[in-house]
Design a protein around this nucleic acid. Structure first.
Length: 329
DNA sequence: CCCGGAATTA
DNA sequence: TAATTCCGGG
């Protein structure tokens, strides 16, 4: 058992912008949990991490809907997780238990019918990563329906729209906002709930919301015309799509926004909404998102049918199998 | 395989 | 708090 916990440093190597020019996943997107106060890395962060790297495409990858991913090699993922946590006896059974705990936390949920397939609930993911966004913006966020029904969990957190996500992910990075030394402090549950409650309106409400286009330039070049958030499924780069045509049919409009054109000049567009994420920014192209665009309810495959796997997916060219060759089905 | 309860741990 | 471990049940 090679349990070299030193790998921690390797995996969290800095200089992300260097090797991931276009589709870098903002560090803060998953760091907060692992960096502040040296909190142990969380499984879903780890998953996201793997998902982000092409090296693991044979092991785990985005597939299907927005936020959906499939673990192609459960044993390997478990092994990697075990290495990271120094738990030599880790296995998929245990790992999956941990994933199951995320159901209630609403970080993940299962895509029924598809083996080893789960789906991220980004509303939550973003929230825990960006708990302090001035969603209030000084304004009283409409504390939705007061106390939630017994269960404690909110009615349902509307999923963020890609645009909202983009805004959040590409938005002004709270590099080190003065007046907030403690990067991310443990927010009281109430705070979280408030934000969560606010999310619904945050989604569509942010359509005409601003973001910082400047950040794109920070990477030296505009992101590849892939997912607006830059890190979604089907990681760009080298992946010769078979007709260079994605299964757009599989993706409802909300998931395939018309790639916001990079505002060349400082487009002066005052935000009309009360919400503001720490710093007003020029409005790139507020594309009003369809209202009831996306509802979280997973409808995965239409029950019966469900061909073996995503037809739309690019042809998984299983080149040189990794150290091992699972290929189980 | 997938689901969660229960006990335990860092 | 976030798993880890064990496990009976579907």
């Amino acid at each position: 058992m090679d349990c070299s916990c030193v790998s921690d440093l390797l995996l969290t190597s800095p200089v992300p912008a260097l090797w991931t020019p276009g589709f870098a996943f903002p560090d803060w997107a998953y760091k907060p949990e692992s960096s502040p106060g040296s909190r142990q890395i969380q499984l879903w962060h780890f998953i996201l991490e793997l998902l982000r790297k092409e090296e693991y495409r044979e092991v785990i990858a985005w597939q299907g809907d927005y936020g959906e991913f499939v673990i192609k090699d459960p044993d390997e993922v478990a092994r990697l997780w075990g290495v990271r946590k120094c738990k030599p006896h880790m296995n998929y059974d245990k790992l999956s238990r941990a994933l199951r705990y995320y159901y209630n936390k609403r970080i993940l949920h299962k895509t029924k019918g598809k083996r080893f397939t789960y789906k991220f609930n980004f509303s939550k993911v973003v929230l825990v990563n960006y708990p302090l966004l001035d969603v209030a913006g000084g304004a009283p966020l409409l504390l939705a329906p007061g106390p939630f029904p017994g269960g404690g969990h909110g009615p349902d957190c509307a999923p963020l729209t890609p645009e909202t996500l983009q805004s959040l992910f590409c938005g002004p990075r709270p590099a080190d906002p003065p007046g907030r030394p403690p990067l991310f402090e443990r927010q009281p549950e109430a705070e979280k709930l408030r934000l969560e409650a606010a999310m619904p309106f945050l989604g569509p409400g942010l359509s005409g919301y601003s973001k910082a286009p400047a950040l794109l330039g920070a990477y030296g070049r505009p992101p590849v015309p892939e997912y607006p958030w830059g890190w979604g499924p089907y990681v760009p780069g080298a992946l010769p799509l078979p007709g260079s045509k994605l299964p757009a049919a599989l993706y409802p409009p909300p998931f395939y926004p018309p790639l916001p054109p990079p505002p060349p000049g400082p487009a002066a567009a005052p935000v009309s909404g009360p919400v503001s994420v720490s710093g007003p920014g020029p409005e790139p192209s507020g594309r009003p998102l369809e209202p009831g665009s996306d509802s979280e309810l997973e409808v995965t495959d239409g029950g019966g049918s469900s061909s073996g796997d995503e037809a739309g997916s690019p042809p998984p060219p299983p080149p040189a199998a990794r150290g091992k060759g699972p290929v189980r089905s």
